[in-house]
Nucleic acid binder design. Structure first.
Lengths: 205, 205
DNA sequence: TACAAATATGAATTAGCATTCATTGTTTCT
DNA sequence: AGAAACAATGAATGCTAATTCATATTTGTA
């Protein structure tokens, strides 16, 4: 009779794939894409290098899956937090707060998305750019809404959205690279105030 | 008797070295460090691959020299423009305006410094971080001065400096990658206003 | 238990690219 | 002109790391 996988085996395979992904996230967070070898990942995942290729077609497919997973996690997290609010300013604040909280919790994710992967190659950058553009789009929508309500001056909301996202990005990257500011969540307050004032919100204390 | 180079030959060698640097800047602007081969650079510079090694000890020495040249160009340009002003806000504005004008003029420089920033752990990356840190340091000094003069609120000037630089960085990167905003120098006005308001400058129109 | 299908292994293969080097071409000086 | 120093060449070398594959182990069915 034909061989059929039992549940036990299927679960084992699934968990092994997850194990590889987990190991890979850790290794990629500390080393560049080029500087990361399959052998290293395999060792960390406690498998032979050849085994890796039973789970992923190649190194590219691995990093693609990792980045896509992170993309999904990040956007879901942001959208979930935004959903609690209707006010434009509140939605902006919720987005960035969600983002920062997630990065503090999943530092490897931040390192991969912001520090390691950007230099890989132009094809990969495209994926990362998608993530960033999505965040910029969300921000611009909030700004356009606020503009329509006459709650902020009629400036170029696209440039404003870029400035907003860029200021957070820079602080997070510096935190990852140099450990400064030490307390990212405390810096969040300063940063949010800075940006709300920049947008022209009237009553920022 | 010992052979002595004539001026004509020395000049030829100098200009060939410059030719290589120029070709390399062009190639590095479009490809990552790892993705750029000496062969490609040599072809563009119209020399044999072996000849490259008569001018540079290796690939690392080449990128180091390029980045150091750019570092120097950029900081000189900024410092020169700042020197015309004594007021803190004016100095901040002059710095970023100089930066943007230089990047518009030397787009390859911007691409190398901002887009091809690889997560590669080598001299290349370290040097790029140096440049950014220098700019952040300058910004923080201006902010500290303004704070001492009680012209801005007593917020964390380091985080503020990061936000300031980060907002410009993001806009410039987006311009390089997607061509938006189309007119970078026009976006500069919006961006500067945003940041001055963010800092808490009172009379931003 | 036997044997077939599925998984796992890690040494061998392969490919790309930086760097070297034996050879050829050019410049300087007598 | 001819020899010695210098410069240029590009094929050959060597290294690193991704991917493959022949072999071994594990799992499922009868």
């Amino acid at each position: 009779m034909a061989y059929r996988q039992t549940n036990k085996v299927m679960e084992k395979l699934q968990s092994k794939k997850k194990e590889i992904l987990k190991a890979a996230r850790e290794v990629f967070a500390e080393n560049s894409y080029q500087g990361t070898s399959i052998k290293t990942i395999a060792q960390k995942a406690k498998i032979a290098t050849g085994t890796f290729y039973l789970y992923f077609t190649n190194k590219d497919a691995l990093i693609t899956m990792i980045v896509e997973e992170m993309f999904h996690e990040l956007l879901e997290c942001i959208k979930h937090e935004r959903a609690h609010f209707t006010d434009g300013f509140d939605k902006l604040q919720a987005s960035m707060e969600a983002c920062i909280k997630l990065f503090v919790k999943e530092k490897n994710m931040a390192k991969i998305l912001l520090v390691q992967v950007p230099g890989v190659n132009n094809a990969f950058n495209a994926k990362l750019i998608d993530i960033e553009n999505e965040l910029i789009k969300l921000t611009k929508e909030d700004l356009d809404e606020l503009k329509k309500q006459d709650r902020i001056p009629h400036e170029d909301t696209f440039v404003t959205a870029l400035a907003f996202v860029g200021s957070f990005r820079q602080v997070i990257i510096n935190w990852l690279r140099e450990g400064k500011p030490e307390d990212l969540e405390a810096a969040f307050a300063t940063l949010m105030k800075y940006n709300l004032k920049g947008m022209g919100k009237g009553d920022v204390s």
